[in-house]
């Protein structure tokens, strides 16, 4: 499941009114999602959630579901103090 929070960040950065994001949604399915907007989305997610991605993670994310899980994992690590 893609949270509304993440969905809204992506919509805002891509300047889209709405999009039906699924776990399996990949960048090439979303209008405007290219390598440059990708960076803007990553930075916006980092700022919004106050988390940091690793370089390798940015390259490995394949779809929205993986991005969501990565965010969730990082948030869980913060809240458990890991």
């Amino acid at each position: 499941m893609i949270s509304d929070r993440l969905k809204n960040i992506v919509l805002k950065e891509l300047d889209l009114d709405d999009f039906d994001f699924k776990d399996s949604t990949t960048a090439d399915m979303v209008p405007g999602w290219d390598s440059l907007t990708h960076i803007q989305i990553i930075v916006a997610v980092e700022k919004n959630y106050k988390i940091k991605f690793k370089g390798i993670e940015i390259l490995k994310i394949k779809n929205m579901g993986e991005l969501q899980s990565l965010i969730d994992a990082k948030l869980a690590a913060v809240s458990t103090g890991l």
Partner: peptide
Amino acid sequence: DPKIYITT
């Protein structure tokens, strides 16, 4: 941002 430089 080294991570962005390295990847893009």
